[in-house]
Amino acid sequence: MEYTHITPRPVIHVDEEACGNAILCLKCVKACLEAGPNCIGFMNTEPPPVGENAPQRLEDIPHKIISTVMVNCNGCGKCVEACPKGALTLEMPEPQVPTVRVQRSDIIFCFTLRDGTKTFPRDD
């Protein structure tokens, strides 16, 4: 059987329409930086034009909010609080029990089971 494991981590959803041009605000970016994880950033929505119509200032380029390395996020929600437009939602993963890692098919390295039974050392 193929085994897939997904490391639980929060996900940030951005309503890009409500957010508008992110670079004019960046309150969530600053809030996440000040909180510690520094998971929120911004990038251009698409590469700007080259030539005569090329933007002369970074602020003239449309930007959107992005997130990365969300394993460092503890879900404090400061980014959501900081957004003046209600454009951010933070989706927390369902709480999960620790996974047992099977090292050998006949031995499971998890010594105390839920009912208190010790699987090691064996009495018999």
Partner: peptide, 25 residues
């Protein structure tokens, strides 16, 4: 070197979480 730099480097960062569902693999 060109105009696509931001889409390239920060864009790659923005999809890292989707690309690495399992931290152990």
């Amino acid at each position: 070197s060109g105009v696509q730099k931001n889409s390239f480097d920060v864009g790659a960062m923005s999809i890292a979480d989707e690309s690495a569902p399992d931290l152990y693999s």
